[in-house]
Design a protein around this nucleic acid. Sequence first.
DNA 1: CTAACTGTATTATATGAGTAATACAGTTTA
DNA 2: TAAACTGTATTACTCATATAATACAGTTAG
Lengths: 135, 135
Amino acid sequence: MISFDNFIMMDTSPIYLQILLYIKRGIVAGTICYGDELPSRRVLSALLGVNPNTVQKAYKLLEDEGLIQSRAGAKSCVVLTEQKMQEIRTELLEDDAKGAVRSLKLIGITREEAHALLDKYWEMEPEMMQEGLEE
Amino acid sequence: MISFDNFIMMDTSPIYLQILLYIKRGIVAGTICYGDELPSRRVLSALLGVNPNTVQKAYKLLEDEGLIQSRAGAKSCVVLTEQKMQEIRTELLEDDAKGAVRSLKLIGITREEAHALLDKYWEMEPEMMQEGLEE
DNA sequence: CTAACTGTATTATATGAGTAATACAGTTTA
DNA sequence: TAAACTGTATTACTCATATAATACAGTTAG
């Protein structure tokens, strides 16, 4: 059963997209694997304190992307080829890295400063990383 | 007069926040300075193809933060202390760097891989950076 | 078998973002 | 001075997000 213990609201983006991203990241990180069962819509919505429809929206998108399988009455579970996993990995890395580089270049810092910033925040304790959400 | 020639829709976040961010980045990058005049609400909304109210919302926030000054009838202009500029610089760098580091760590890549990604996208042509927007 | 769970679907409501159309008062400028 | 711009404010509308309350059919487990 996939755990949502580490799920936290990252920003003000739609919740169903944050759930989607949480699962995609788990897949890429290897903490979510082929065959893993997902919490039911009702259980996860209660756990996250959101509406079941919001969870359903996320699960529906995951199914449309072919990452999970659902059949009426039974729990949904992860169905995932190695190729699909690599695709998601590339997608997530591109989004994150491109976005950060674009932002930092717009601010006008140098590549060396960017590397220094990366190191600075990489070693930082998770508690210190909590704040500084996007606006 | 502040130029919005380089303004592009970065993501699906609210337009008024993107305008806010564009100006903050310009201030930090040094392309927007004390005393610079802003395009009027009507002119900028026509230029960006959005509603005047959307621009007004961004300008209102900038005024609330003490970054611009408006008076009825006249153009708005940038009022900015060196200290304020440094505050914004820190704020923007923290947001971008923390956000990127948090995401990359969740995906499970190493610090070395992160540095390699940074270099890879840093040298990339701006055209190639266009896509890969956040979801 | 049946009770308690699943997924799925529907309808209604609330809120925030963005648009649209105005209106009015203050300023610049020709 | 008067026209053409400014900022500011209001009301109404659409759309996406999220919630709420159900309903129904399929699966699973006691």
